[in-house]
Design a binder for these strands. Structure first.
Lengths: 161, 161
DNA sequence: TGTAATTAATTGACATGTCAACTAAATGCT
DNA sequence: AGCATTTAGTTGACATGTCAATTAATTACA
């Protein structure tokens, strides 16, 4: 039997290799997960990237420089500027220039930002259960382990031939 | 010991649940894979989405209507138009309006499109090996199976409470 | 036949990601 | 002091993804 992913993608030919099937399966699954997150966040006026920034700030518990935030996200530095712009515009956070080093811009959650994060905590827990709750604890552990092993060859620059 | 992903993300608190760790791990890994693909394609003047469209056309072996292409990609319908625009502009494919039903636009690979696909076949095989070749056949099979199981709860509309 | 509903595709508006180039402030070094 | 380098962040250009709305052609059916 041809693989299910092959059918999902209406792909005519089978996969060239198990590696290819795994990579495409990974991208496809991640996209479906991403769509679910986006749907939830949109209901609260946020995009996934925006939520991620607010979550990082809450996790830290204090204002962070813009580049420090960038280093903890996938987003590349120039993308952060517009992201922060829109979050500030919407009142979820505020910029504060550092007095000691006037190149640095700190970003701080507002009350509104803290509130929207709180509103999302419970729905997010439920969404996670909803998406992956049908996998057993063992399966989740195996999946996490395999993904970690996959990433070990994907780290920045690894294997750049 | 805290999880490695937690360290990778400089995350202060542990994950709320195994489901959360698995979901974030999935997104992170997929992003790294995507970046590698993008790097390869860029060297040939293509983006991942553009390559994907060319690949679909080659797999089919004949011209396809635009909406048929859209249905085989993640890309939402309106996004396809611009994508096809740029591919046509670059000479990789051509539009042909259907004579029977003048609403339909067929898209067909050009010689140049076929050539660039050919140039990428070998490097892609190598990239796949490079990215996931350190996983055993058993591990790849397990990963593919778990991702498939994950997708079963993520299918369009599934679990929309 | 003629009008409503459907279908294929495009357009426009906006968020994001990515690159290259830039500004401004701080540091290093002579 | 004075000039080169580095660092923090922004800007501009372009590709993509997403939504809502639109155009154009076809189909359904009263």
């Amino acid at each position: 039997m041809a693989s299910r992913l092959q059918a999902e993608l209406k792909k005519k030919k089978p996969f060239d290799s198990p590696e290819q099937e795994a990579a495409l399966s990974l991208l496809r699954t991640a996209d479906l997960v991403q769509v679910r997150f986006a749907r939830l966040f949109r209901g609260h006026g946020l995009t996934p990237s925006q939520y991620n920034i607010l979550r990082i700030l809450r996790g830290e518990g204090k204002p962070l420089p813009i580049l420090e935030i960038a280093s903890r996200t996938i987003t590349v530095v120039p993308g952060i500027t517009g992201l922060i712009d829109r979050l500030e515009q919407a009142g979820f956070l505020a910029r504060k220039r550092c007095e000691k080093d006037r190149r640095v811009v700190y970003v701080e959650l507002t009350t509104k930002g803290i509130r929207v994060l709180g509103e999302l905590d419970q729905p997010l827990l439920e969404l996670h259960r909803n998406m992956l709750g049908h996998l057993s604890a063992t399966e989740l552990g195996t999946l996490i382990g395999l993904l970690e092993k996959a990433r070990s060859a994907l780290a920045e620059g690894a294997g750049d031939a």
